[in-house]
Design a protein around this nucleic acid. Structure first.
Ligand SMILES: [Mn+2]
Ligand SMILES: [Mn+2]
Ligand SMILES: [Zn+2]
Ligand SMILES: [Zn+2]
Lengths: 129, 129
DNA sequence: ATTTTATTGCGAATAAGTTGCAATAATATA
DNA sequence: TATATTATTGCAACTTATTCGCAATAAAAT
């Protein structure tokens, strides 16, 4: 399963890298300048996830959102699970720089975390006052 | 919108109260001894949520799971957001007694939390050794 | 230049959850 | 107790997100 470079892949990756928010398939489709099929976008995203380039967040709306792993800082470091924030007002999801540290009961083994806080982001709470 | 007592409501609530796991609509439908329509189950569950009797968890599979608020202990206390654990092996979701404490950036207001850890539960990790 | 096979587009399928509507039944009221 | 009110239910249809099969396309290897 060798990966190939394609315009689609690059376009989606660029979009994710330049976005400060996690994006859903349809947000990606809308924001892309080139037209890419829905199924293809999902396939590209899932491949990115398999390769550890991107991580997937499932929000309480049941939809999948995708974000680049290790944004800024040192892109070497392995990404660790972190919280996400979903603003109900502007309907965006962003990665918080807050690691998920949770002591589970004895014998439990955590492999992954999907943690989404919901509320109002800084921007929106300022606007509403 | 006064609530009425119905066999359906009681059956669903009993099931949830006696279950140690969060249940999805189809799990509920399967486990009920009486036959209840899919839409009805969802409506009952959503009403329970509105009334604060039940809380909803959305897992990474995008499905909704429902669990009684304030199980054992003092049923007076307001339920606080807590972590959930989803075992990939036995495919169950349970409420952990671990509160979600997360310091969000300045100006952010948290209203709700949906936090699901994934991995292997105690039972299943014992079995696999 | 040719071959190999990863990637894509298209349409159809799947699955979860919701909604409109008419029928039913719990509760309030006379 | 009989009647009126309206919350609840069942059914079928609908919506929306995601996946899948398959044939066509196009990277990359030879
Ligand atoms: Mn993230
Ligand atoms: Mn819970
Ligand atoms: Zn916002
Ligand atoms: Zn298990």
């Amino acid at each position: 399963m060798n990966r190939r470079n394609t315009p689609t892949k690059e376009a989606v990756l660029n979009l994710l890298m330049n976005s400060r928010n996690a994006l859903s398939q349809d947000a990606i489709e809308r924001q892309l300048d080139i037209e890419i099929n829905r199924a293809t976008i999902y396939r590209v995203l899932n491949r990115f996830c398999e390769d550890g380039i991107v991580h997937k967040i499932v929000a309480e709306d049941g939809k999948q959102y995708f974000a680049i792993c290790k944004k800024c800082e040192n892109p070497q470091e392995v990404i660790q699970p972190h919280f996400h924030f979903r603003c109900l007002s502007c309907d965006t999801i962003e990665c918080l720089q807050v690691p998920v540290e949770c002591s589970v009961p004895n014998g439990y083994e955590v492999q992954n975390a999907n943690c989404v806080l919901t509320g109002t982001c800084n921007n929106c709470s300022l606007l509403s006052t």
